[in-house]
Design a protein around this nucleic acid. Structure first.
Lengths: 180, 180
DNA sequence: GACAGTTAGTTGAAATATTAATGAAGTCTG
DNA sequence: CAGACTTCATTAATATTTCAACTAACTGTC
């Protein structure tokens, strides 16, 4: 199983070109979005966290669901959450049902922060990825990425993680402010 | 300039869906590829560096060109290069013409390492991104990313950075082993 | 209910990345 | 050619991320 016998199936010319474009493009996107948010004092990965919280029912999410959602390690999320907590944007609350669990809750200040930053961020996303790509092609990109996503994160349908969906059902839908 | 007047242009339903798919998918790809290379003792970003070197004429590239190519900060590349140097995969050589400059040169050992790891990596790329996406759709993804790339890194045509192209012309094409 | 095994989240130390400052060498202008 | 300015790469500091324990709480089995 771990012995790579024979010649691997190298990439074709076309595959290679597309893959390279992806690799470099994705790094540039990350860099651009991050830079724009940095000027408002957050990293993209931090923004993603509070943004996800802001859209969740009750503006709260369990650590592990959130970690899966933003594709970060548990440990990383723990550290980042601590950081966000120090800024007063989130608080931790322990789960009622599962006493191992911790929920991260967006504070009012956190909510305000997301609102403000969303303006910057949406403009940033437009400039970096939406504007340069004609809509049908961007659609295709989304479709492709969705296939990849479902291959790599089996079970997470519709951008939703099973655990998240489960939790969602358990709450009132209080904040459908889905903006970004 | 820094006052975001009025309501920004929020994303449409479709744009949002596609953008989300991209964001999560790209993180998952990164994670998957990195995990597979980790088992061989390198990070994806390190692999990218030596891989680029391995394809360059003379198996060498100037620090700043390389930094642009792999979309890393100069400083980051400096650190990473030091690390790679300690493993005996690269050596630094100062530029003949521009005495500020430093060229990173792939050693024989480094070359071997790339060859070995390329097998793992190409399989990894297939599994993560090529297999789940039908070829025409993957092509579209490449095209979209290329548009984004040229918007964000103006001047870098054909996956090639101007500085790199310039340097390429100055060398014999010794290693056209373009594999990944 | 006691055991073994698993999962959730945290912690601290080590590795890596970012930031701002530096020095050395190039370029440009007058 | 002098001076001002830019670029290249590195360094030192700070910040973040990863890695390997670790504790607590849940699950299942007997």
């Amino acid at each position: 199983m771990s012995t790579p016998s024979g010649e691997p199936q190298w990439l074709s010319e076309d595959e290679q070109r597309a893959w390279r474009a992806y690799l470099r493009g994705s790094r540039l996107i990350e860099e651009a979005l991050d830079r724009d948010l940095q000027s408002h004092g957050v990293q993209l990965t931090e923004y993603e966290i509070i943004s996800m919280l802001s859209e969740s029912p009750g503006r709260r999410l369990r650590m592990s669901s959130l970690a899966d959602l933003v594709v970060q390690s548990r440990s990383r999320l723990t550290h980042t959450a601590t950081r966000l907590e120090k800024r007063g944007w989130v608080v931790r609350e322990s789960c009622l049902d599962d006493k191992r669990g911790v929920e991260l809750v967006l504070t009012e200040r956190g909510w305000q922060a997301v609102q403000d930053m969303a303006r910057v961020h949406v403009a940033s996303v437009r400039r970096a990825v939406l504007d340069p790509v004609p809509p049908p092609l961007f659609s295709a990109l989304g479709e492709a990425m969705d296939l990849i996503r479902s291959a790599l994160a089996p079970g997470g349908a519709d951008g939703e993680h099973p655990a998240v969906a489960r939790e969602a059902r358990a709450h009132e839908a209080t904040a459908p402010h889905t903006r970004l």
